[in-house]
Amino acid sequence: MTQVARPPRTDTGQRRGLAARVSLGRIFTPPSNEFVLIASTALLLTVFGIIMVISATSATESGVMDTAIKQAMFAAIGIPMMFLVSRLPIAFLKKMAWPALILATMLQLLVFIPGIGVENDGNRNWINVAGFSLQPSEFLKLAIALWVAYVLLRKRVLLGIWHHVFIPVIPVSLLAIGTVMAGHDLGTVMVLVLILLGCLFFAGVKLRLFIIPVLLGVVGVAALAVLSPDRMRRISAVCTDMTNYENDCYQSIHAVWGMANGGIFGLGLGNSQEKYGWLPAAANDFIFAIVGEELGLIGGLVVLALFTFFAVGAFHIMRKTTDPFVRVAAGGITVWIIGQALINIGVVIGIFPVLGVPLPFMSQGGTALLAVLLACGVLLAFARTIPAPARGKVTR
């Protein structure tokens, strides 16, 4: 009997098997502490927000189920997308910086097209598509953070020269932010300016070069305020007494009353009194007042603690990363989410005038929730790039 000679083994099969094992190893690699911290806080805040939106809208005529289903639907879309974006390579995110900014700006320009753009309380910052209201400026926040980080990455050795810092960052950013300014949305403009300044700061730009961007931002915000009599009246209103109760201070006073009624332990979930027609936008910009009324000081501190843990995870990414793009983009996203949360809470407790800025993760609004979950996905993608020694591995 003759034996058939076997072909000699090559290293190709071995290399393929090794590549497969390495690929599987990357998939099942335990996530970093920063990944777990950001993902868990984002999920907890989202679920917490859905519960509070259901509670805040339970007294509305439209019915709680319609609102709850819409909010839960956007969460059901945004959470998987968050984890999907977390698997994207950093090189792909860099390539998408310019297309994302262009696409987001084009979407924002749709608000000025009759029949598509929607105006609400003097602000033209929404579009109506197939019965759904979308706010394109929410996606512009993420696009600006990625784009500025990408441009500053390519100029990282020239950041000590002012014109290399400002061109094209400042003109292009102002052009994109100008599309929101044209819609008279002062709160969103302030957040976008914060993102721009945050990116410049975490890029290591010298503080003396911040003078021009800060002045431009102040001039822009002041122009928006002065050119709108309604907005100027709200900004100049003093809400420390009852003389302006039925006018500009109505929302602020009722928000403070609601939180005062909550005390330390709150009135109980679902037992808010302000949501019964007393507090406008109870499920939107003033959701934190409902949290304070129903869950008390403890509930408010829990929300603040979750945002604090989120910030800690994001700052750890910035501290441990070796990629300037990751550091700058993560800084811009963190300034966006944490800064917007502080502005919203400041409005609710009466520190700031009413600016129309939602509380990230928690306020009613599908576009805002979807955008912030996508931004969290980018942060999670950054968390996967943290070098192994920085993940707490013990070296011998």
Rank of each mutant, 00 (worst) to 15 (best):
G299Q: 13
G299K: 07
G299N: 05
G299F: 05
G300A: 10
G300D: 05
G300C: 07
L301Q: 06
L301P: 07
L301Y: 13
L301N: 12
L301V: 00
V302R: 10
V302M: 11
V302H: 08
V302N: 07
V303H: 04
V303K: 00
V303M: 01
V303S: 02
L304S: 10
L304D: 04
A305M: 14
A305N: 11
A305W: 15
A305G: 12
A305C: 13
L306H: 09
F307M: 05
F307N: 04
T308P: 10
T308R: 15
T308N: 15
F309N: 06
F310T: 00
A311G: 03
A311W: 06
A311T: 00
A311D: 08
A311P: 01
A311S: 09
V312F: 13
G313W: 07
A314W: 04
A314P: 08
A314R: 01
F315D: 01
F315P: 01
F315V: 12
F315Y: 13
H316Q: 15
H316M: 14
H316R: 15
I317Y: 02
I317D: 06
I317T: 10
I317W: 07
M318D: 02
M318Q: 03
R319W: 08
K320R: 12
K320S: 13
K320D: 11
T321W: 00
T321Q: 11
T321A: 03
T322N: 15
T322H: 15
T322C: 14
D323E: 14
D323Q: 11
D323L: 09
P324Y: 04
F325L: 06
F325V: 11
F325H: 02
V326G: 03
R327K: 10
R327E: 04
R327A: 07
R327G: 04
R327T: 03
R327N: 05
A329R: 01
A329Y: 00
A329M: 02
A330R: 09
G331Q: 00
